[in-house]
């Protein structure tokens, strides 16, 4: 008895030891900088130069919201890309998952893996490839368009509309497979009996999916849309590389300038850390709001 008690007391602090690396690292490299960035956002704080940080209260926030010519533009661009690049693709991913899940299709694994591959490739590689595919004079896209239309070649990477189209294509191409795999797992969890009843009633395929599949998938759609909002509002790498880095600030008419891109520019090119931190918290508020809307809409749809 004595030994067991001693033993159990000794093992008492082992679990704390085992989980401690996460908490130490998170406090030092995660939590502390996050709290510090709230503090920073109230200061005029420059990375270079000798001037000491100066307290400006909400000055950075009001500056960004009322005087900055780029912030609203960047936010609008981000929301547009969120819709065309991240949200609309759920309308492609769900039918794709239904198609692959259909009993008549063989080679499910092949389709699943080939659709998923873009998700694990580095953004730099993806953007370099699509830069070539959408090249004005030599790209395959304009080459293919040339077969059906005699109109002047579209300058995809030099015009504001084209930049948004290419970015949307890249985002769709990269993330559809991931969403599809999630929906595929969701479809496989729907009980088959639900469809049997509909089959007896003679419902069409489309009818079946609208009245059974989609409602059954709602929790997964909510989750997928939430992840798309969180990811989409942070889009930085794709437009940054495609339009040519800090100097270009999103290319023609800043049409590729996203909120996170502008945050990075403000902090690491203009060296204004206080203002950059304020932008970061504003983006965070937008993410929270949009996810609140997502939750509200899902609740409504669930009835």
């Amino acid at each position: 008895m004595q030994t067991i008690i001693r033993k159990s007391r000794k093992q008492g602090w082992y679990p704390y030891l085992f989980v401690s690396p996460f908490f130490i690292l998170f406090c030092v490299f995660g939590l502390y900088p996050i709290l510090y960035s709230i503090f920073t956002s109230f200061f005029d704080w420059k990375l270079i130069g000798t001037s000491a940080p100066r307290f400006v209260g909400l000055g950075n926030y009001t500056n960004v919201l009322t005087q900055d010519p780029f912030f609203w533009k960047a936010l609008l661009n981000t929301v547009i890309l969120l819709v065309t690049g991240s949200l609309l693709q759920h309308f492609i991913a769900i039918p794709l998952a239904i198609m692959i899940n259909s009993k008549t299709v063989k080679g499910k694994e092949f389709f699943k893996t080939s659709f998923f591959l873009p998700y694990i490739t580095s953004t730099v590689s993806v953007v370099i490839i699509f830069g070539v595919l959408f090249d004005t004079n030599y790209g395959i896209v304009n080459w293919l368009i040339g077969f059906v239309s005699d109109a002047a070649k579209i300058r995809w990477l030099q015009e504001s509309f084209g930049i948004k189209v290419v970015l949307s294509v890249v985002l769709n191409w990269k993330y559809i497979g991931w969403n599809m795999v999630i929906y595929l797992a969701g479809l496989q969890a729907i009980p088959y009996e639900l469809y049997e009843a509909a089959m007896i009633d003679g419902a069409s395929t489309l009818r079946k999916h609208i009245s059974i599949t989609i409602p059954q998938l709602l929790p997964i759609i909510f989750f997928g849309v939430a992840l798309s909002i969180i990811g989409g509002m942070q889009i930085f790498e794709e437009p940054f590389i495609l339009t040519g880095g800090y100097e270009q600030l999103g290319g023609h008419q800043n049409s590729g300038l996203t909120a996170a891109y502008y945050l990075m520019f403000t902090a690491f090119k203009a060296y204004r850390l206080g203002k950059g931190s304020a932008i970061a918290w504003l983006i965070f508020l937008v993410i929270l709001t949009l996810n609140g809307v997502n939750r509200y809409v899902t609740k409504k749809l669930e009835g």
Binding site: F18, F22, F23, F29, G30, P33, Q234, A267
Partner: peptide, 30 residues
């Protein structure tokens, strides 16, 4: 293991995944 605050600590780990990466990036860089 069964230990005090296990569930709270685990919840903390899971919740930390929802924090967007850009929030800490400026002080982290400094």
């Amino acid at each position: 293991y069964r230990f005090r605050f296990r569930d709270q600590l685990y919840f903390f780990v899971i919740a930390s995944m929802a924090i967007p990466g850009f929030l800490n990036i400026i002080p982290f860089y400094k």
